[in-house]
Design a protein around this nucleic acid. Structure first.
Lengths: 179, 179
DNA sequence: CAGGACATGTAATTGGTTACATGATTGC
DNA sequence: GCAATCATGTAACCAATTACATGTCCTG
């Protein structure tokens, strides 16, 4: 499972709590990796057993205790080895396309609604992305490597959102001729 | 799980064996839904228990027996109900992007190799898609609804492949300046 | 006579979702 | 006083991967 590796890559930057990690996975990381807080806490516990991470507990007055996790030597080694492996294409799951194929079964109008709903979601995603891009990557030229790769992951989201939007517009147009 | 619904949508067209279904899932369906044969046979068995599908066994001399599955009234009802539900965005998993973020850890060259490898894969995908498009959807104008939606699912794959290719080229270009 | 297509599964393990559970602090 | 944010988990269940298992026919 690469959730372990996704977490390790976040811990590489700075030590974090499970709560912090969860915020990342619900936020900007969400479009290339998703995980629930239950999964995150479980995976942290597993990695602690394997000594891929260390933990220190910070007692805070008038707040719940924090467990702050950091990557260990073994974890860093494991992460490096993983990064060197060739990627194997992971399974796609796009229920929208299955539903689209069911148009003759359920009728054009219902599917048009689903597509339009998705269009709205994609457009809102685009706004989120372009906000992030403008606030974090405004200076277009010669960023340091670490910022440059972050920008590229964002660009990946942006390009795919754009492609999906164009496709949705096309799909809606074509389906509309079959009402 | 929508694997059940993906299978039902294939059985809607015609009765099929587990083997047939597997071929579909390894072939043209693969880019919007993936499943292994183990999963398929298991899911068929589960759906048989629920009476979403029927089965008849065809004994063939000098070949293994076939179990030919067909969708039932209940299955069709279930499929229709499912199609009407709003879609919830499913979790994305893109290990390539995590690895890209690890460039400072492992070095530009290794990651450039991964990106170039992926470029080759995407280009080969594009050829596959455009072959299918030319053989099955050559006549651009006014297809019947069922063919039209099939073409649209293909177009979705084509557009995303194109977007990924452009992004990969861009990513390779930018990373190359950091060697 | 070897390797690929045909044809179907079981078992173990891992990964992921859903439901449940708790408890303090801060701002409206 | 009520909702949101902070902070961490358990348990049950469902989904998916990996390894194992079997046997025939057809083509080169």
């Amino acid at each position: 499972m690469s959730l372990k590796h996704a977490i390790l890559s976040l811990l590489l930057e700075s030590d974090k709590t499970g709560y912090d990690l969860n915020k990342s996975f619900q936020g900007s990381i969400a479009y290339y990796w998703s995980a629930s807080h239950q999964q995150i806490y479980k995976t942290l516990a597993d990695m602690l057993k394997d000594n891929w991470v260390q933990v220190r507990v910070s007692e805070q007055d008038s707040k719940p205790d924090k467990k702050i996790y950091g990557i260990s030597k073994e974890g860093k080694h494991e992460l490096t080895q993983w990064a060197l492996q060739p990627i194997k294409p992971s399974g796609t799951k796009n229920p929208l396309l299955i539903k689209l194929l069911l148009t003759p079964l359920v009728g054009t109008e219902v599917i048009l609604q689903l597509l339009k709903q998705r269009l709205i979601e994609v457009e809102s995603l685009q706004h989120t992305y372009s906000d992030i891009e403008q606030t974090h990557f405004a200076s277009a030229e010669s960023l340091p490597l670490s910022a440059s790769v972050k920008h590229l992951t964002l660009r990946c989201g942006i390009e795919h959102a754009q492609a999906e939007k164009q496709w949705l517009i096309d799909a809606i147009k074509r389906l509309s001729t079959h009402v």
